[in-house]
Simulated scan of single mutants.
Amino acid sequence: MMLQKLQALKNIFAEMEMALIAYSGGIDSTLVAKVAYDILGDRALAVTAESPSLLPEDLEDAKVQAAEIGIPHQVVQTHEIENPNYASNPVNRCYFCKSELHDTLKPLALSLGYPYVVDGVNADDLKDYRPGIQAAKERGARSPLAEVGITKAEVREISKHLGLPWWDKPAQPCLSSRFPYGEEITVAKLQRVGRSELYLRKLGWRNLRVRSEGDTARIELPPEQIKEFVLTTELPALVSAFQSFGFVYVTLDLEGYRSGKLNQVLTPQVRNSTYSALDIS
């Protein structure tokens, strides 16, 4: 089944002839970039959006991965933080983020002669509340992974099959996802979250989130790692570092990291809403 889906993915790019990939450097868009380049060569272009919601270190990772794949790579600037509809952090914040992204990528693609803009949305993403998908589809973007039914687990399985060394890379959504809906997002807040997460990464913790609520940082780690974290981390040094980044209080979430936790405060009506624009055909 995995190989059949991989072949179907290849067939999509063979039919496209040229494609521009919305490439964040995450495991999903990197697989798309890899397959696109294998089929199209230099007729595939990976483009990464640089903004305050992307850690500079993650941008560097994206550059390294693109170079290893061999795909041509460009970096463009996006300015979603300047849009009050985004900065006010409503429940559909991602709609305005992806609107800015694809309003940047689509004209670029057309100017360079690329008829398609594709992203890394996978089949599992369609089951979650992700208003950004609507914005992308409204602007004509395609989602090849979702089109052929490739799930998140299969993204990793296929990436490993293709020999990509980052096949087990933790998911790293944009830093804006660290804030509860309704709390204003600023560049300073994004930076303190980014610095805090980088601090923990350098200590060896890979799969984590630092949630920001007012002046409080809430650290989320996989539940099975919480005990080890408490016993092995020099907590006073950590608190001092986080306070130097701009937080006042530092806490540890005893439930642990769980994908989609941000959306648990949404009403069932909002969480279960399905946009017609999400229908992948």
Rank of each mutant, 00 (worst) to 15 (best):
L9V: 03
K10V: 00
E15Q: 14
M16H: 04
A19H: 01
Y23V: 02
G26M: 03
L31K: 02
V32S: 01
Y37S: 01
D42P: 00
L45S: 01
A46F: 01
A49I: 02
E50V: 14
P56N: 08
K63N: 07
Q65L: 13
A66C: 08
E68R: 15
G70K: 07
P72R: 08
P72N: 07
V76L: 08
Q77V: 13
E80D: 08
A87V: 06
A87I: 06
V91M: 13
V91D: 14
C97A: 07
E100R: 09
K106L: 10
P107H: 06
A109F: 01
A109N: 02
P115A: 07
Y116M: 02
V118M: 01
V121M: 06
D125Y: 07
K127N: 14
R130L: 05
R130K: 09
I133W: 01
I133P: 01
P144W: 03
A146W: 06
T151H: 08
V155A: 05
R156Q: 12
S159I: 08
L164R: 07
W166A: 06
D168M: 11
A171S: 15
Q172L: 04
P173S: 07
F179S: 05
E184K: 15
I185H: 03
L190M: 11
Q191E: 15
Q191D: 15
R195S: 07
L198G: 02
L198T: 14
K202S: 09
R206E: 15
L208Y: 03
E213C: 04
R218C: 04
P223K: 10
K227C: 00
E234N: 15
E234H: 14
L235G: 06
L235T: 12
V239W: 06
A241N: 10
Q243E: 10
Y257M: 11
S259R: 13
Q269M: 05
S276G: 12
S276P: 00
A277I: 00
A277T: 11
